[in-house]
Design a protein around this nucleic acid. Sequence first.
DNA 1: TATACTTACTTACATAAAGTAACGTGGTGA
DNA 2: TCACCACGTTACTTTATGTAAGTAAGTATA
Lengths: 110, 110
Amino acid sequence: MKQPTICPKFEKAISLLSQRWTTLVIYQLLLGPQRFNEIQTSIGISGKVLSDRLKELENQGVVKREVIPETPVIIKYSLTEKGQSMEPILKTIENWSQTWIKLESELSSN
Amino acid sequence: MKQPTICPKFEKAISLLSQRWTTLVIYQLLLGPQRFNEIQTSIGISGKVLSDRLKELENQGVVKREVIPETPVIIKYSLTEKGQSMEPILKTIENWSQTWIKLESELSSN
DNA sequence: TATACTTACTTACATAAAGTAACGTGGTGA
DNA sequence: TCACCACGTTACTTTATGTAAGTAAGTATA
């Protein structure tokens, strides 16, 4: 590793977003507040890593964790304002993917 | 891992972009065609991983590798049309980061 | 009271990815 | 011939992720 010459804010954003699963977790939460198991089963992440990611995203102020003392207790994860503000990023990626990504099943003549 | 329920094209795009370094390599190449060592020193990636990423990006049709038989030989990496088309994604992330990312040095009152 | 069940994790261990540093290759120049 | 440079590759270590079993708090059931 040498010394990078890139804007540190951009770099920090990238290092967040390019952690495996982070983007998908945020994408999922853009659909609305969700519980641990909902996120887990809908994106197919392991419990261990989801736990790590949610903690990190909470630390970064992207995700909010709420304990609802019902019976049984419900833990609800949702996006903060900062998290919501990432929607354009996800939408841009989504748009791009629709135009440019070819799936295995479509790769015939390239 | 359970079964995910997300658009496969979007997922494939995410799995590309959320590989460590991929985004930074593309970002760097958006500044113009560059040689191996230029990329390496400007983003601070190890030669081994850069080599892997460039191969993968070439396979995905994002990066083009050109051998220029000068003296000594020059290997020039540049973005294909598909690679160039990712610029909006990077710009969106850059904009977001300027507004929302706080650096260590700025974290006093949060 | 004991047993079993649920959600939301955590822990222990195995595999995969990334980092580091040394080496290989093809060509130049001294 | 020896040293040097660009562009990698290889061998080995460290870190991240996956898998499966376990824990804790609360209920319901017998």
